[in-house]
Design a binder for these strands. Structure first.
Length: 421
RNA sequence: GGUGACGUGGCCGAGUGGCUUAAGGCGCACGCUUGGAAAGCGUGUGUACGUUUAUAGCGUACCGAGGGUUCGAAUCCCUCCGUCACCGCCA
């Protein structure tokens, strides 16, 4: 959500920022709406003042036993006028709110221009690619008899999978490992959040109203979370935090549910794009002056777990065309998949600035200061468990016997299993 | 799921239609007092928006949320949400 005052004071800058998102000039129309809304508000307020004064007069007239009918008639008229104006103002406010809440965040100046993911900028490549080529994870898993898409399809349809035995355990091991690293080494607080949320929460983290298509909705009016970013970030919704307690760093290991509407035909093979997958998420709640440093820190936290797993990956900055709706800047981590001979995204670390905080009225206050300010929110995968599992299967594949070697850091989580065979 | 009670400021708590400008207390901040502290005394103490050169002033709204009744609502009515207690069911 954008700050109208910012648009009022910097209309050209705002239009320029939206142009980077491929949007036309909007400030003129938005400011016109805003101005007429404010004019109406002022008018309404002065009428309300009159009404309040007159009502008080009625009270005192009546208590003195005098006739108050003339004043009462007058108030009736005022009330009628207020009603009309309020209706008008309501409509304007709603239009304005809808327009504003469907506009994407302003990107940082250092986000490179570019049309799509092809133009993301690689900032580093980490780890050595030891396995150039391998069977893909589907072949590996099915040959081991531990990966079953067919049975999952029978139960739930396409884009679901069943993991069995040691492979199921390996998935769990990855989740626990990520969680342990972030809580023990990186200072994140483990959260076990709700997986069903109200639309308010999804509005706060900007999945709604624009991206309802990508979500699963329950019959109760709840929605299944597409990422733990939703409950974790919304923990500070409608609140005023004390600056001295910040930053808050939350992490959670949760299932994520995505309808993948509009991705028909994309990544249909394997576990890359599922309706349901596990992810360890990191969320930081910070003051504006902390947010750049926190963003880099979060990126490092995500990189650390891949390094510990000794998985080769590269880090990219998303270009303007690929940066998500709510982010002002995003780094992606892409892990090497020898089955596809490609780097594939396993983490996305975004700084949302005050964009989400404004939507969810998440504020902070410094001791002694009177003003409240909007928090900055950041979220990042630390990392996607399903895709990390794919990466482990393919990078740790042993062509000699078709098995999967367990990475050293996961051994403590595998109960003595050194290799899945 | 059933029945009942309840939801007021940072916290406790009064308030059942107009002297409420939300009493009183606690906490907090500042000041007075003191050699210093405590006690005591005094002053102040929310959020959002509008207006404005303005961290002044003025105004509007906000007593769980949203509607309604009324000239006037914390107070009356309706719907929803949440909390607590007991009962039922249940991982």
């Amino acid at each position: 959500m954008h700050d109208l005052r910012f648009i009022r004071e910097n209309p050209e800058a705002f239009d320029k920022a939206m142009a980077r998102r491929g949007l036309p000039v909007l400030s003129t129309e938005l400011l016109a709406l805003d101005e007429s809304r404010r004019a109406l508000q002022t008018e309404i307020q002065s009428l309300q003042q009159k009404r309040n004064e007159a009502s008080k007069e009625i009270g005192s007239l009546k208590s003195q036993g005098k006739d108050a009918r003339a004043v009462m008639d007058n108030v009736s008229k005022i009330k009628y006028e207020i009603g009309l104006l309020e209706e008008e103002e309501d409509e304007l406010a709603q239009t304005l709110h809808m327009r504003l809440s469907s506009l994407p965040n302003i990107m940082s100046d250092d986000v490179p221009d570019g049309a799509d993911e092809e133009e993301n900028i690689e900032i580093r490549v980490v780890g050595e690619i030891k396995v150039k080529e391998s069977p893909d994870h589907v072949e590996i898993g099915e040959k081991l008899g531990l990966l079953d898409f067919e049975t999952a399809a029978k139960i739930s349809g396409s884009r679901f999978v069943i993991l069995k035995g040691a492979l199921a355990r390996l998935e769990r091991a990855l989740g626990l490992f990520f969680l342990d690293v972030h809580t023990q080494d990186h200072g994140y607080t483990e959260i076990s959040p709700p997986l069903l949320v109200k639309d308010n929460a999804l509005y706060g983290t900007n999945q709604l109203p624009k991206f309802a298509e990508d979500l699963f909705e329950a019959t109760s009016g709840h929605w299944l979370i597409p990422t733990a970013e939703v409950p974790l970030t919304n923990m500070v919704a409608n609140s005023i935090q004390d600056a001295k307690d910040l930053p808050y760093r939350y992490t959670a290991f949760t299932p994520c549910f995505r309808s993948e509407a509009g991705s028909a035909g994309r990544d249909t093979r394997g576990m890359i794009r599922m309706h349901q997958f596990y992810k360890v998420e990191m969320v930081s709640i910070v003051t504006p002056d902390q947010s750049d440093a926190e963003h880099k820190r979060m990126l490092e936290c995500a990189e650390t777990v891949l390094k510990k797993l000794e998985l080769p990956f590269r880090t990219v900055v998303l270009c303007s065309g690929d940066t998500g709706f709510g982010a002002n800047k995003t780094y992606d981590l892409e892990v090497w998949l020898p089955g596809q001979q490609k780097y594939r995204e396993v983490s996305s670390c975004s700084n949302c600035g005050d964009f989400q905080a404004r939507r969810m009225k998440a504020r902070f206050k410094r001791t002694g200061e009177k003003d409240t300010h909007f928090l900055h929110t950041l979220n990042g995968s630390g990392v996607a468990v399903g895709r990390a599992l794919v990466a482990v299967m393919e990078n740790y594949y042993d062509p000699q016997d078709g098995g999967i070697v367990i990475p050293d850091v996961l051994k403590p989580y595998m109960g003595g299993v050194e290799k899945i065979l």
